[in-house]
Amino acid sequence: MMTPPPGLPDEDAAPVPKIDTSVPHPARRYDYWLGGKDNFAADRASGDRIAAAYPDTVTSIRENRRYMQRVVRYLAAEAGITQFLDIGTGIPTSPNVHQVAQETAPAARVVYVDNDPLVMVHNRALLIGTPEGVTEYVELDLRHPATILDDKTVRATLDFGEPIAVLLIAVLHFLDDDEQAHRIVADLVEQLPPGSYLAISHATYDPLPTETLERLRRLAEKGKDGPFRPRTRAEFEQFFTGLNLLAPGVCSLVEWRPDLDPKPQAKVEEVAAYGAVARIERS
C-alpha cells in the first residue's frame, strides 16, 4: 500500500479521537512539569496548583524519570529482560523505556499503553526503536487489565512464554479505589510467566511536613485535578505480596540502585514517592 504524501490523511488510519482540553490529564500535566509543550491550559493550571501546594513536585517528577531509567537499565543489562510492557507511559520524554532497553539489548521488544489519545499520537510519531527491536503502542486503560493482556498487538509483540517486565511508573496513585488498584496489579502478575518482573513507583505523603499535607488536603477537596490516592509504605508494599522483592526493597526513589545511571540528584526528604522492583516466581 502506498503511503500518502505529507499532509494528506491515510484512508486506512483510525480517526484521531477527540481530546477534551478543558479537563486536566495526568500525562499532559506530567509533560508540563517536565518542560514539555504537549499540554493545554487546564493541564498547566492544574500543575501550577499542585506545585504551589507541594513545592518539590517537579523534583519528585524528575527523580521518577531517573528511577524508571535505572530500573529499565538494570532489567535489560543485569536481569536479561528483553520484553517490556509499560502501562501509563505518558507523553514521550527522551530517553524513554525503549531507548534505555534497546541501548543494552537492541532486540528488546516494548509495548507502551496509555488511555490518552494525545499520548498515542505522539508515541506513533516519536517513539522509533532500533531496527532489531520492536516498539508498539496501544490505547487502553489500566483499569481493564484483561483488555491489555488480551490485546492483539500486545500478544503479537510480547512472547508470554518468556519473562516480561511490567512497568507501572507513577500511574497507580491515579486509582483512588484501593481494592481496585491492588486487584489490577494482582491480575497482571497472575498472567505473567515465571521470571518476569514488576516495577512500580508511587506517590506517598509519608515524608511530607504537616503544613504541606494541609495544603494538599485543601486542594483535593476542591476536586479540580482529578482522582489522586497517595499511599503509605504499608499500602505500597501490598502491591508486592507474594513476590520476591529485589534489594534494596521498598524505598524512596532516590534510594533504589543509586549506583546506576542516571544517578539521583535529590535528597530523600525532597521526593514523596516509593519505588520497588520484584521478580515473579512460580512454585
Rank of each mutant, 00 (worst) to 15 (best):
E281K: 12
L198S: 00
R229G: 11
A278P: 02
A14H: 07
P262A: 10
T241P: 05
A278E: 06
A45F: 07
P262K: 05
P194L: 07
V268F: 05
S22N: 10
D151M: 08
G80D: 08
K222I: 11
R65F: 00
A266L: 11
A13D: 14
L216T: 08
F239I: 10
A13L: 12
Q102M: 01
Y74A: 06
S46T: 06
D20H: 06
G35I: 07
G249N: 10
G226M: 13
K263E: 15
T93E: 01
D176Y: 06
Y205H: 12
R282V: 13
G133Y: 04
D141Y: 02
A186M: 07
G129S: 09
D141V: 04
R66F: 03
Y54H: 08
I87D: 00
T241C: 09
T57W: 01
I19T: 11
G129N: 03
D38E: 13
T93L: 03
M68Q: 14
L188E: 04
L75D: 05
C251L: 08
D178A: 14
G226S: 13
K263G: 14
A53I: 12
L253P: 00
P95R: 07
A266Q: 12
T21G: 00
L213C: 10
A266D: 13
A146T: 11
V121G: 11
A146Q: 14
T153L: 13
E237K: 14
R282Y: 12
F160L: 03
P95Y: 06
T212F: 12
M68L: 15
I61D: 00
S46D: 02
L158D: 00
T204F: 01
L216W: 06
A108R: 03
V111K: 00
A220D: 13
I148C: 09
A278W: 01
L216D: 03
G80S: 08
Y274C: 04
L168Q: 02
R62T: 03
R218A: 13
H182F: 07
I50G: 09
P17E: 02
T232L: 10
L85C: 09
L208V: 13
A76L: 06
V16C: 03
Y32L: 03
Y54V: 09
N39P: 04
H182V: 10
V23E: 00
V154K: 04
Y32M: 06
V23N: 01
A278V: 09
E179H: 09
D114G: 09
A170W: 05
V110A: 04
T147Y: 06
S201W: 02
D20A: 06
P106H: 01
E162Q: 15
K222N: 07
R282D: 13
L34V: 09
R155E: 08
Q99M: 15
A165D: 02
E269H: 15
P117M: 06
D10W: 05
S252T: 09
G133D: 01
A266F: 08
G7D: 11
E269Y: 11
D43A: 00
G7V: 08
G249K: 01
M2A: 15
M68I: 12
L243W: 12
L85S: 03
P24N: 05
F160W: 04
R66T: 04
E237C: 09
P193V: 02
P230K: 07
P24C: 03
H182W: 12
Y54G: 02
T82S: 14
